[in-house]
Simulated scan of single mutants.
Amino acid sequence: MARVDVLLPFRDAAPWIAAAWRSLARQRFGDWRLVAVDDGSRDGSAAVLEAAANGDRRLHLVRVPARGVAAALNRGLREVSAPIVARMDADDLSHPERLGRLVEALRRHPEWHAVGSRVRLFPAPNVPGRMAAYAAWQNRLVTPEAIRRERYVECTVTHATLAVRTEALLGAGGWWEGEGPEDLDLLLRWHRLGCRVGKVPRVLYLWREHGRRETRRSARMTATAFREVKARHLAAELAARGIGRVTIFGRGASLASWTGALARRGVAAEPADWKPGRGVPRWDGLAL
């Protein structure tokens, strides 16, 4: 049994998957196995991966009909036997020290349930300005306290950078297979369960930007889908704390959307028009 099972779902990733394998093969930490789940590829991705592995017994390939990334992840989770599950995407690259540093971080912090790392987007000409700003914001969040504090802003950790204690992943029920971002849902579920997520303050993961990324094409990754996942978890968190009425500060369509999303989940949400940059509003209550 390996110490780390790397879980990699893929569909039609033939242009990149060999490079992803090579980045794993160069890891200085060698006690890993790749659980690669072919989610209905039609471009020969699995054959490309097998050729790159060239008989390496650390490759464990599972083929399933196309059902989406969350279902593929849950199928791969059934194959996991290691105490740590690391994530990776088929179009990205891992730094040679990535797995070793993540394993060491979990050893040094037994109170952490999961750990990620900083990321670098590449190639630079393909990176939109908003994505660069997002990565810079996310890379500033390193401690469990900072990651928890910003949890409803956006995904605070790039999902594919994570190494997770297998028991924490199983205890949370694996990945959500609904119509929305499974990575944000998992992070918010962990926070509600009291799990602590940290980050190695170093770039250990290279996140490839290209036009075929699911984040650019999928209806599961729209602003509306993200807001619905946030609202679902926020409403549950408020209910657990006995809070049934909130004030939402914002403007225009975004303010109306958030008010409606929470109202649909039984939260009485009072909108308050406020533009960032104005003085900080005063109110009596609790800031989550």
Rank of each mutant, 00 (worst) to 15 (best):
R251W: 02
A225L: 10
A219G: 09
P125D: 03
R213K: 14
W283F: 15
Q27S: 11
E179C: 04
R213P: 01
Q138D: 01
R78I: 10
L286R: 14
V80L: 14
P281W: 04
V115P: 05
P281M: 03
D12N: 12
R264K: 04
G194C: 07
T259E: 08
R165L: 07
E182Y: 14
R107C: 04
A114K: 01
V62E: 03
A172W: 11
S94V: 14
P15V: 04
T143N: 00
L170Q: 14
W32P: 05
A223N: 08
W175S: 03
H60A: 09
L169K: 05
V37G: 06
D185P: 06
L187Q: 11
R120Q: 06
D183L: 13
W16T: 14
L288D: 12
A82L: 15
R251Q: 09
R151S: 10
G250L: 06
N139V: 06
V153N: 08
A51V: 10
W175N: 03
S218Y: 02
A105D: 00
G277T: 08
E150D: 08
L169Y: 07
P125E: 09
R282A: 15
W283K: 02
A52N: 11
H233L: 11
A239D: 11
G285S: 11
E237T: 11
G279I: 10
R245Q: 06
W21M: 07
I17T: 13
R28W: 00
W112Y: 03
R149V: 04
